[in-house]
């Protein structure tokens, strides 16, 4: 399964390592954010459920927009990742791939 690209990757190992590091910095930051939002919500449910019962209007409670907001936030986080990856990441990948091909030729 390993390809001949192994040798040529060494053409610019620093560039590649930086790319990998950046990818995981973004991914893990977004993962931590998602975990924080969800477990923050669970924490409030467990220990401060009264906060979510606060009235917004006549009867409507804070809990409903917060819950729906978490659904929206999960989707927005995936959107942020796609935006980042479609821009910077994909460009960097094609730059490194070009460099590899030049080295091969």
């Amino acid at each position: 399964m390993p390809t001949s690209a192994t040798a040529t990757a060494a053409c610019d190992p620093r560039l590649f390592a930086a790319l990998v590091r950046k990818r995981w910095t973004v991914s893990l930051a977004l993962t931590v954010l998602m975990l924080g939002i969800y477990y923050g919500f669970i924490y409030v449910l467990a220990y401060r459920a009264d906060l979510l019962a606060t009235r917004l209007g006549e009867r409507m409670t804070v809990g409903i927009p917060v819950g729906l907001g978490i659904i929206l936030a999960s989707w927005l986080l995936t959107g942020i990742y796609v935006r980042w990856a479609n821009g910077g990441y994909d460009d960097a990948v094609s730059t490194i791939k070009c460099a590899m091909q030049e080295n091969q030729g």
């Binding site: 399964m1 390809t3 590649f16 990948v93 791939k97």
Partner: peptide
């Protein structure tokens, strides 16, 4: 083999 896996994983080569 990890180096080769990295190339394929992040660059999609192969």
């Amino acid at each position: 083999l990890y180096a080769a896996q990295q190339i394929r994983n992040y660059l999609g080569v192969g």
